[in-house]
């Protein structure tokens, strides 16, 4: 399938600081890709390069079969900058109307777009009177103009309340199923986990991991945490029977590799009357994320 977005070995330095180091990435039509990474990892820099807003040093970027920042690319790509800002003296409707006209569409579509992001009732108020989340929604509304091929969204859910976040991802699902490619950055791992097709982790300007959540979980091969609750007065017996286990309050905890999970459970089951309960926790997305971003990064 032809790619909507291709970056090959893109390098960008700011006066000696390497912001991106040989970064490669592809996004296909209909695909939702999440870009994760610590503060200063290079997420916003990558997005600005894709939009053609800043130059890069080496590598190749192709956006909707055109050069980044070219008129053809700009006509096909929607952008939500981080901390999107608007002129406080304009109303939401006037601001969106302006963006519509820049894309050659009638300003009258503004009301419908604002309705879609839940700003219908505030459309005729000045943006200066909006809350942070409402301004963010104006930013989202302008990305919906004219069915773009690629949406580049820099922390789109920052400042949104939980319900609006869910609405936002529902909106994205609709766009993706219509064939739009979506690249978004986020620090909210749990929502990204459920709502995107692929995760890319950047650390210090390098791609350190890429794939579906299941892929990353397998690659990281992080140990599971097992918590055993001993029966009354049996803590000593349980500790003795499980090498590597430590006492934590009333509980006995130990970690175990994925492959050792079943043998361990069998041994715990064999302890029979000495065990009151068992809990197994798989590594969280936070654990996987910090595993990757720490390994090559910080």
């Amino acid at each position: 399938m032809t790619q909507t977005l291709t970056l090959s070995k893109v390098t960008k330095t700011y006066q000696g600081v390497t912001a991106l180091d040989e970064v490669s990435l592809r996004v296909s039509p209909g695909e939702r890709v999440a870009l994760l990474g610590h503060n200063g990892a290079g997420k916003s820099t990558m997005m600005k390069i894709i939009l053609g807003l800043i130059p890069f040093d080496h590598g190749k970027v192709e956006v909707a079969a055109a050069a980044p920042g070219s008129a053809a690319a700009r006509a096909r790509v929607a952008y939500l900058p981080e901390n999107a800002a608007f002129h406080p003296a304009l109303t939401g409707e006037e601001q969106i109307g302006f963006y519509l006209r820049l894309r050659g569409r009638p300003a009258s579509e503004a009301a419908g777009l604002l309705e879609r992001v839940g700003l219908g009732s505030a459309a005729r108020r000045r943006i200066g009177t909006y809350s942070k989340g409402m301004r963010q929604r104006v930013g989202l509304a302008q990305t919906l103009i004219g069915a773009p091929d690629l949406l580049v969204l820099d922390e789109p859910t920052s400042g949104l309340d939980p319900v609006s976040r869910r609405d936002f991802y529902a909106l994205l699902d609709g766009l993706a199923s219509d064939g739009a490619a979506i690249l978004l950055s986020s620090h909210a791992l749990t929502e990204v986990e459920a709502r995107t097709d692929r995760i890319v982790i950047l650390a210090k300007g390098r791609v350190v991991a890429e794939g579906t959540l299941a892929d990353l979980r397998r690659q990281a091969a992080l140990p599971l945490q097992v918590q055993v609750t001993p029966a009354v007065d049996k803590a000593g017996a349980v500790l003795a029977a499980l090498p590597g286990a430590t006492a934590a309050g009333r509980q006995v905890v130990l970690s175990c590799a994925q492959d050792d999970k079943l043998p361990l459970l069998a041994r715990i089951a064999a302890l029979n009357g000495a065990v009151a309960d068992v809990d197994i926790q798989p590594p969280s997305l936070e654990d996987i994320y910090s595993h990757f971003s720490r390994r090559d990064g910080q």
């Binding site: 600005k48 939500l80 002129h87 302008q142």
Partner: peptide, 10 residues
């Protein structure tokens, strides 16, 4: 901070 978005438009 309105310039980046404006310049991303055609």
């Amino acid at each position: 901070g309105t310039l980046p978005l404006l310049l991303a438009y055609p």
